[in-house]
């Protein structure tokens, strides 16, 4: 099989893009297995000596499991709450007729426009008076306020694309509104719910500013905060930081790969003519 020049160019561009995207991750992987000394003296694209010291240090000396657990709890809970509330809100916004819908949509979007840094102090005071500093809810609630608008917007858009006829057919077939929601709409919205869930999870998993401001000690610190605090006064333990980065990326990568089939699958195919 011969490829035409355009195909070659396209392939080359694609390869370049993949290289550009994957290289940092590859480099972090390599560096996380390289002794610190070797990393600075003779950096190499290929790992020469592989050591597991950084990973051992991560879990034995530093107790990196606690931040991972914290991150999983905070990001997981936020995602679940966001999806439940967001799906219901999106259903209402996409399907029901009520006054002021455009205003509500605009307001929801406006919430995300605030620079995070500008509301850290008021939020801190608020959370302190609620005695929620250094607790899981103290992180989950601010995360929800920032992740929810995204959830609602994406889900509203995707629910609007599900043909209304399907729910109407279900109504005529005898389904109540609740049944048409759970039996027809929800299964069809699964791909977009999964996509939104991943985005929300990644946002919470990587969030740094709130996590740094609203936690006090290692018991409630999340992964990004923990990694940032690896840095000592006189030295930066690059090997450990990169090992931590690799470990932190794993759950997200696993989740995306796991949901990939569901996301790509066009579930509405065949509903209506076309």
């Amino acid at each position: 099989m011969t490829l035409r020049p355009q195909r070659w160019a396209f392939g080359a561009a694609l390869a370049l893009l993949v290289l550009f995207t994957l290289f940092p991750f590859y480099w972090a992987m390599v560096a996380s297995f390289t002794p610190d000394a070797a990393l600075f003296r003779e950096p190499s694209l290929w790992p020469r000596t592989i050591i597991l010291d950084h990973y051992r240090a991560l879990f034995v000396e530093r107790d990196f499991l606690t931040p991972i657990r914290n991150s999983l709890v905070v990001a997981g809970t936020t995602t679940v709450f966001c999806l439940v509330v967001g799906t219901l809100a999106a259903y209402a916004l996409a399907r029901l007729d009520f006054k002021g819908k455009p205003a509500i949509m605009a307001f929801i979007l406006a919430v995300t426009m605030f620079p995070q840094i500008s509301i850290v102090s008021p939020l801190y005071l608020l959370l302190r008076s609620l005695r929620l500093i250094d607790t899981y809810p103290g992180l989950i609630m601010p995360y929800m306020t920032f992740a929810m608008p995204l959830t609602v917007w994406i889900l509203t858009g995707s629910i609007r694309q599900i043909p209304r006829d399907l729910e109407e057919a279900a109504h005529v077939d005898g389904a109540s509104r609740r049944q048409s929601f759970t039996k027809i709409l929800l299964p069809l919205a699964v791909p977009s719910i999964a996509t939104t869930g991943i985005l929300t999870f990644i946002y919470c998993w990587n969030e740094f500013l709130f996590a740094l401001s609203f936690t006090l000690g290692p018991e409630r610190q999340t992964v990004p905060v923990a990694i940032a605090l690896f840095r000592g006064q006189y030295q930066v333990p690059w090997g450990q930081i990169l090992a931590a980065a690799v470990v932190a990326t794993a759950p997200v990568a696993v989740m995306v790969l796991g949901f990939q089939r569901r996301i790509v699958q066009g579930l509405t195919a065949g509903a209506v003519k076309g």
Binding site: D165, A169, V172, L188, L267, A271, V272
Partner: peptide, 16 residues
């Protein structure tokens, strides 16, 4: 759902 009638839609509206 309480009228006990059936409807055939233009685009069929099958549950995909």
């Amino acid at each position: 759902q309480k009228r006990d009638i059936a409807m055939v839609f233009q685009n069929y509206a099958l549950y995909p």
